[in-house]
Design a binder for these strands. Structure first.
Length: 876
RNA sequence: GCCCGAGUGGCGGAACUUGGUAGACGCACGGGACUUAAAAUCCCGAGAGGGCAACCUCGUGCCGGUUCAAAUCCGGCCUCGGGCACCA
């Protein structure tokens, strides 16, 4: 065998190369066979529910998934090793539009396409070695899941929290279908580029506004959420307190209802602005103005569509009507104005140009009067010279009995006055709208309602659930929703009167599916309830939720709403679903472009040249990986080349979780190199390691010299990694700490004298450190850890092994480095015994040659000593 | 416009929670060892400028402040990224 000695230090014929593929597959089989990650509630240990946002089964996982799930897996595996009862499930958000599009394009059935994708992605996730309890897998497109969507919908309907109303939707006349907001690009249909119209349709809504206050209040009770997500949710809910006031229309019985947050400015009203589509305009506009008002409304409607988000110039038309200020009796002209939104408040705004910038601009454009009612403290506003509205605080003026009050006090005084006089009342307004869940789509959860000519909208009886989505439908992408053409599905008998009736053909928004899946995971097989109360009670809330920031508002708000609504249905006792939220950054990569062939995939770039025309490529900005920019890396290719452990390790090492991560393959190689280095550390020293047990500071005699230092470094690293992983998710620094320890072990392993591996004690210290490295690596790179752990002679797999503990006494140093500053600049470094008293430190500094240079001939003004750390001597 | 977040070597990032050696760890780079050679591996070097050297000066977006001491705290500004955007 000797002729097969492999070159390199300390290699011998027993050496095994690090071959991730074989190891990883083998351990995945073991974990699966052992049901290693099955969540079982055992008494005594605390529960931890770790959850990553489940994926849409698009067909293949992408780097965003890899990152998201690697983060979750580190947390889950760490907690398992810490002895917690961990629930770590995975499933599929498997209803949605891409399945229908694929069906239309490729002639497959959405169900077949989806199931194939799930099978494929499940395989990919298993290849990554994530610690999921696969027995709890759910797929929202399966009847055993979506029947409970329907059940919950009916329960909400019973409570009046699901209702139907007319509302406008995006409508593509060419495709004859409704489009979601995100499918409208610059006012055009994303598929056929026709101009999208607004169409009024009957839609089902969920009354999320009933929970607006609670959803808002709890944003102040979620310390484990990133502040920016909470801020976004608060903005979205958009609560504002103010007053509702009625302005009678002069010469009419009609009253204009307005909402204002500034009742203090009511005496400064000089005109009224109303949304162009406000229904009252038809009634109050004068005969000679009505046509112009209508034309204006049409024009604004058309412009809104075209422009999308950009704000327009302020425009309006006079309606010919006047309203009467209920407080002052003054008359003010009524305008239809393009900046007033029908959707918010009451669709009508009292205009106070002196104290509102929009009203000010409008007044200037149309030559309307400006009337100041608040003076800034110590100043008097001059409406003739004002160039902008004054929106600050001040003292009331021109407001009759309220003059000389502070405007902040006048707000409530005037509101009270208005209420007493019956002109209006204090009110609260929200930007949050009820959630329209009707989708004219096939691949979604059918809404369990039957329409009967005699009984109207009748809920499907609970015992007839689920309403199964029929499989035999034509998918053309044209005409009506596929369900509307599925006769066998539509035609039913009315559950109430038995007469022929029709089923609802709309399906639910897929956000409904994802609003409670975390509850279903607690008892995924429950057959008579959406989830068992006892299971939800004990596993919920999710302790750590991890996902992309793109869900900051929609999904996370809907999930919070459902949690509260289901609580109020008595299904579980929790107020909030997710105690801690981690929003991970995007995975980005440099864009590569060929002057002739446009964006290039990484594999189309051969050493800086386009593979098609050999022209030099241009490299652009680092941007989020996307198919359209072609800056994507297929996780499978990376796993194939380097293994899952390397893929995981790199995605955790290259950046902290919240920050964007730039993908670069050299970095991946670095991670691979590190794992190989750990492998060799064990493999090259396997005989030494098998011949020794680990040093145990609790039982064994104390160490000194290099052995003590090695031992101390081990425990220092355990402390650092435990904190970084367990407390603040600083995975990148945790990994770098392990790297440092490995570097130190390489140094140590090369010392074969009494200060190294020569004495048995040295080998025991070495083994203690190597054991710690392997265990600490386990959450990041679990396969190699298992393999090395076995090589180190353990009979128990890592997943059943406890996380290493650090020993406080082992951290204690005999000597410490004192940095010496003179006038704030580092001039010397002294190594002194720990806890050397201050006067001894002072003497040491004065005796120190380097320091003395700088002190010589000067007066010592001050001596600052931070124990065991630093000295700063101020001299002059 | 408003609200967040971030600016540190050639690059990703560390130190910011708790003011105390700025640049850990990794990548890229340079040097050495091993090799017939290469790869791999192991070791060493490296913020910038100056000096033969010991060392010195400067240095965390900019300006100022607090402090014995500031990347870190405070005030003002600049740039980039994100979110909201006529919300009455």
């Amino acid at each position: 065998m000797d002729e097969y000695i492999i070159s390199g230090p300390m290699r011998n014929s027993m050496t095994r190369r690090y071959e991730p593929k074989a190891i990883e597959q083998a351990w995945q089989v073991v974990w699966e066979k052992d049901k290693a990650f099955k969540a079982v509630k055992a008494s005594g240990a605390g529960k931890r529910y770790v959850l990553e946002m489940f994926p849409y089964p698009s067909g293949r996982i992408h780097m965003g998934h890899v990152r998201n799930y690697s983060i979750g897996d580190v947390i889950a595996r760490f907690l398992m090793m810490k002895g917690k009862n961990v629930l770590h499930p995975m499933g599929w958000d498997s209803f949605g539009l891409p399945a229908e599009n694929a069906a239309i394009q490729h002639g497959t059935h959405p169900a077949a396409w989806t199931h194939e994708n799930i099978a494929n992605m499940r395989k990919q996730l298993r290849r990554m070695g994530f610690s999921y309890d696969w027995d709890r897998e759910v797929a929202t497109c399966m009847p055993d899941y979506y029947r409970w969507n329907q059940w919950i919908f009916l329960k909400l309907h019973e409570k009046g929290l699901a209702y139907k109303k007319r509302s406008s939707v995006n409508w593509c006349p060419d495709c004859a279908t409704v489009l979601a907001n995100e499918q409208v690009e610059d006012g055009l249909c994303w598929r056929c580029s026709s101009t999208v119209e607004m169409k009024v349709l009957e839609q089902w809504f969920l009354k999320i506004t009933a929970y607006a206050d609670e959803l808002l209040d709890f944003t102040y009770k979620l310390p484990g959420w990133p502040e920016r997500v909470l801020v976004m949710q608060r903005n979205w809910i958009g609560k504002s307190e103010g007053a509702e006031v009625f302005f009678p229309v002069d010469g009419s019985e009609e009253k204009i209802r307005i909402f204002t947050t500034r009742p203090d400015t009511i005496c400064g009203v000089t005109f009224m602005s109303m949304a162009p589509e406000h229904p009252l305009l038809e009634k109050i506009s004068s005969k000679d103005r009505i046509d112009e008002v209508r034309r204006f409304a049409e024009k604004v409607k058309a412009e809104k569509k075209l422009r999308g988000a950009e704000p327009a110039e302020k425009e309006g038309v006079f309606t010919g009507a006047y309203c009467v200020n209920p407080l002052t009796g003054a008359k003010a002209p009524v305008f239809a104005a393009n900046f007033v939104l029908m959707e918010y408040g009451t669709g009508a705004v009292m205009a106070v140009p002196a104290h509102d910038q929009r009203d000010f601009e409008f007044a200037k454009a149309y030559g309307l009067p400006v009337n100041a009612v608040i003076n800034p403290h110590g100043e008097i506003l001059d409406v003739k010279t004002m160039t902008a509205a004054f929106a600050g605080e001040g003292v009331m003026t021109n407001s009759g009995q309220f003059d000389n009050m502070k405007n902040t006090e006048a707000m409530s005084a005037i509101t009270t006055h208005i209420a007493q006089k019956g002109f209006g009342a204090k009110t609260v307004n929200y930007k949050l709208r009820d959630w329209g869940i009707s989708r004219q789509r096939y691949w979604g959860c059918p809404i369990p309602i039957i329409y009967c000519d005699s009984c109207a909208a009748v809920p499907v009886p609970l015992d007839e659930l689920p309403v199964i989505l029929p499989e035999d439908v034509k998918l053309t992408g044209k005409g009506l929703s596929p369900l509307a053409e599925a006769g066998a599905f539509i035609n039913v008998k009315c559950p109430k009167c038995g007469k022929p009736a029709r089923r609802e053909t709309d399906t639910m928004d897929t956000f409904v599916d994802s609003s409670w899946y975390f509850l279903r995971y607690t008892s995924p097989k429950a057959e008579s309830v959406p989830f068992e109360k006892t299971d939800a009670d004990s596993w919920m809330p999710v302790d750590q939720y991890i996902g992309g920031i793109e869900h900051a508002v929609m999904h996370l708000l809907y999930a919070r709403f459902f949690t509260k609504a289901l609580r109020d249905l008595g299904l579980h006792p929790h107020d909030e679903p997710f105690t801690n939220l981690l929003t991970q950054g995007m995975v980005c990569k440099e864009i590569v472009k060929c002057p002739e062939h446009g964006y290039l995939l990484p594999e189309e770039n051969a050493g800086g040249k386009c593979v098609y025309c050999l022209k030099p490529v241009e490299t652009g900005a680092v941007e989020k990986m996307s198919k359209s920019k072609k800056n994507i890396i297929d996780p499978d290719l990376i796993i194939e080349k380097y293994g899952a452990d390397t893929t995981r390790l790199f995605s955790l090492f290259a950046a902290p979780p919240e920050r964007d991560l730039d993908w670069n393959e050299e970095g991946v190689e670095g991670s691979y190199r590190f794992l190989s280095r750990v492998w060799r550390l064990v493999d090259d020293n396997i005989e030494l390691l098998s011949g020794a047990r680990a040093y145990d500071p609790a039982r064994d005699e104390p160490l000194d010299g290099a052995l003590k230092e090695m031992h101390r470094a081990t425990h220092k690293t355990i402390k650092k990694v435990t904190e970084d992983v367990g407390e603040n998710f600083h995975f990148n620094t945790a990994i770098s700490a392990i790297m440092e320890l490995v570097n130190a072990l390489y140094q140590f392993s090369q010392k074969d004298d009494a200060q190294g591996l020569s004495p048995l004690r040295g080998r025991q210290v070495f083994k203690e450190a190597v054991n710690a490295v392997v265990l600490m690596l386990a959450p990041f790179a679990p396969h190699i850890s298992e393999e090395l752990w076995k090589m180190l002679g353990s009979r128990e797999p890592v997943y059943r092994t406890k996380w290493p503990e650090f020993n406080e006494a082992s951290l204690v140093k005999a000597e410490t480095l004192i940095v010496v500053q003179i006038n704030g600049k580092v001039r010397s470094r002294l190594t002194l015994a720990v806890d050397t008293p201050e006067d001894a430190v002072r003497r040491a500094v004065l005796n120190d040659e380097k320091s003395a240079e700088w002190i010589k001939g000067k007066n010592i003004l001050k001596f600052v000593y931070v124990p065991n750390k630093i000295v700063n001597m101020v001299v002059s």
